[in-house]
């Protein structure tokens, strides 16, 4: 279907935007990877918050991160979000967009108002699994456009 080429990103060798999926659920990763690759993005994966942080400290940051909330522990995703948002304040890090995903459905406004109150940085967007595909792809596209 929609096979349009994604906007070139500065981080990938082939000039395509690089997206990191951080999730412990293999099935969710497999289908989300297929979806994003079909759209022309380069997709990498980390299986835990810990692995994500390790990758981010060693490699060039991706353009966007799809981040699960509950992984090795229930706040693992928040920790990664926090680390990236603070870490990306350095000029050379550039801006990394974060799309948070979770099976838990809570009004995102409510959820992140709470996160804000305890001093957490809120992610750019929030999606409930399974993803609303058109809305998800639209969000990814516009976040990548903003950060370029």
């Amino acid at each position: 279907m929609a096979q349009e080429q994604a906007r070139p990103g500065q981080n990938s060798a082939r000039g395509r935007s690089k997206i990191l999926i951080v999730d412990d659920d293999d099935d969710f990763c497999a289908s989300t990877t297929a979806l994003l690759e079909a759209e022309g993005y380069v997709v990498a994966r980390a299986k835990s918050g810990k692995e994500a942080l390790a990758r981010l400290s060693q490699e060039a940051p991706p353009d966007l991160i799809v981040l699960d909330i509950m992984m090795e522990h229930i706040w693992a995703g928040y920790e990664v979000n926090q680390a990236i948002k603070f870490g990306s304040r350095s000029p050379q890090a550039g801006r990394v967009s974060i799309v948070m995903v979770s099976s838990v459905t809570i009004d995102p406004a409510e959820r992140f108002r709470w996160a804000g109150e305890v001093g957490m940085v809120t992610p750019d967007e929030y999606f409930t699994k399974p993803l609303d595909i058109p809305r998800f792809l639209g969000t990814v596209k516009s976040l990548l456009r903003q950060s370029s």
Partner: peptide, 18 residues
């Protein structure tokens, strides 16, 4: 919810990308 969501998303992506 997670397994149900995972299965549904396989089908959603299958139809979307086919």
């Amino acid at each position: 919810k997670a397994p149900l969501g995972a299965v549904k998303q396989y089908l959603d992506v299958l139809l979307h990308t086919s």
